[in-house]
Lab assay of single mutants.
Amino acid sequence: DYEVGESVTVMDGPFATLPATISEVNAEQQKLKVLVSIFGRETPVELTFGQVSKI
């Protein structure tokens, strides 16, 4: 299970290999909103559970 505030690594898509912090969890739809730090700015990205891995 994923929790808000948890650190994960993006495994898929254009942000693969980047660390991210979970900002929202939708367990019903198996989706997460995460904040990816790009060029010093936090960018919100919506991903599925399968696109991230716990650190």
Rank of each mutant, 00 (worst) to 15 (best):
F15R: 02
P44H: 14
E24G: 07
E42M: 07
S53A: 12
V52L: 03
D12F: 14
N26A: 06
K31M: 13
S23M: 15
L35F: 09
T21E: 06
A20C: 07
S23W: 14
F15T: 02
V25K: 03
A27T: 12
V36T: 03
F49S: 03
A20I: 03
P14K: 07
E24W: 13
E3H: 14
Q29V: 09
T48N: 12
V8L: 04
L47F: 06
Q29W: 08
S23I: 15
E46S: 08
K54A: 06
E42G: 05
T43E: 13
K54M: 05
M11Y: 04
G13D: 02
E24F: 10
D12R: 08
L18W: 14
V10T: 01
A27C: 11
Q29A: 12
T17Y: 13
Q51A: 06
P19Q: 15
F49D: 01
Y2P: 04
V4S: 04
F49Y: 12
E42T: 07
I38D: 06
F49H: 03
G5L: 03
S23Y: 15
A27L: 13
L18H: 10
L18R: 08
T21S: 05
F49N: 03
T21F: 08
V4T: 05
D1H: 13
S37R: 12
K54S: 06
L18I: 06
G50Y: 11
L47M: 07
N26H: 11
D12H: 12
Q29P: 03
P14Y: 07
I38Q: 09
K54H: 08
D1N: 13
T43C: 10
L32R: 00
I55Q: 10
P44G: 09
S37H: 13
N26G: 04
K31L: 14
Q51C: 05
R41H: 13
F15V: 02
Q51H: 04
L35D: 04
L32W: 02
S53M: 12
P19M: 15
T43A: 06
S23P: 00
S7P: 07
P19K: 14
R41F: 13
Q30K: 12
S23L: 15
E28D: 12
V10D: 00
L18F: 14
T9G: 03
K33Y: 10
L32F: 04
Q29G: 09
G50C: 09
V8I: 09
I38Y: 12
S53I: 11
L47K: 02
I55E: 09
E6Y: 05
V4K: 06
G40R: 02
K31P: 02
I55M: 11
A27H: 14
T48D: 12
L32D: 02
S23V: 15
P14R: 07
L18G: 03
K54I: 06
S37C: 12
P44N: 12
Q30E: 09
M11T: 13
Y2L: 05
S23F: 15
R41V: 15
V36H: 01
K54D: 03
I22Q: 01
L32K: 00
G13P: 03
G50H: 11
T21A: 05
S37A: 09
I38T: 08
V4L: 07
Q29D: 11
V36L: 09
V52E: 00
F15Q: 02
V25T: 04
D1A: 13
F39W: 10
E46T: 09
A27I: 13
V10Y: 01
T48F: 11
E6F: 05
T43I: 15
Q51M: 08
S7H: 13
E46V: 09
G50P: 06
G40E: 06
Q29I: 09
V45N: 02
G50M: 12
I38G: 08
I22F: 00
E3G: 08
V25E: 01
G40K: 03
R41Q: 13
Q51G: 04
E42Y: 11
I55N: 11
T21P: 02
E6I: 06
G40N: 07
S23G: 05
Q29K: 11
I38M: 09
F39Y: 11
V45P: 00
I22L: 03
P19C: 12
L32S: 00
V34H: 00
M11A: 07
Q29S: 11
E28W: 08
A16P: 02
V45G: 03
F49P: 03
F15D: 02
T17D: 09
T21Q: 08
L47P: 01
E24H: 10
V36K: 00
F39D: 15
G13K: 01
E42N: 08
Y2Q: 01
M11F: 04
E28Q: 11
Q30S: 09
G5D: 04
V25W: 03
D12W: 14
N26T: 05
G13M: 02
L32A: 01
T17A: 10
Q29C: 08
T17R: 11
S23N: 08
